[in-house]
């Protein structure tokens, strides 16, 4: 390959890479910078309810209801001010559990959020089960603040 051709190839690659990066930034800024809305934003109407949105919060304790035959599940997502009932047909991620963070993607229909996708949100804590048991009280006080800013 001639030097000129090689240079052309690399310039094209460089321009493509930079364009790609810029497009990604713009895309991120347009709609995805806020990855999810809180139940409070939904209740107050500040979330764009007419389109497909994501809502995030904590799975309320004792709110998960599963039907044994199908994959249908319903649970409540809360930010401790407001909460929304979410229904979902599908496989839940392994980290999904009551008292943990969750992000659901879907639409609000008659004050029930019908999710197409449910993602679990992990907190920043890593510890062995024994330590977790000991820290349970302390953790219950700390976690809510960290999820909802």
């Amino acid at each position: 390959m001639k030097t000129r051709h090689r240079r052309l190839l690399f310039i094209t690659a460089g321009v493509l890479a930079l364009t790609g990066a810029t497009l990604l930034v713009l895309n991120a800024f347009r709609s995805n910078l806020v990855f999810f809305h809180t139940p409070t934003e939904v209740a107050e109407g500040t979330a764009p309810l007419e389109q497909l949105i994501r809502i995030g919060g904590m799975v309320e304790e004792n709110s998960v209801e599963k039907t044994s035959e199908s994959l249908h599940v319903s649970f409540r997502v809360t930010d401790f001010d407001h909460s929304i009932t979410v229904t979902y047909d599908g496989v839940l991620p392994d980290l999904f559990r009551e008292g943990q963070g969750v992000v659901a993607e879907g639409r609000l229909r008659d004050s029930v959020f019908v999710a197409d996708r449910v993602l679990a949100k992990h907190d920043e804590n890593y510890m062995p089960p024994e330590v977790a048991a000991m820290k349970l009280d302390e953790k219950a006080q700390n976690t809510p603040k960290k999820y909802y800013k």
């Binding site: 990855f35 839940l92 980290l95 679990a120």
Partner: peptide
């Protein structure tokens, strides 16, 4: 863990 390979978060 999350239930997805990729999301477009920040």
């Amino acid at each position: 863990m999350w239930g997805t390979y990729w999301v477009w978060d920040a």
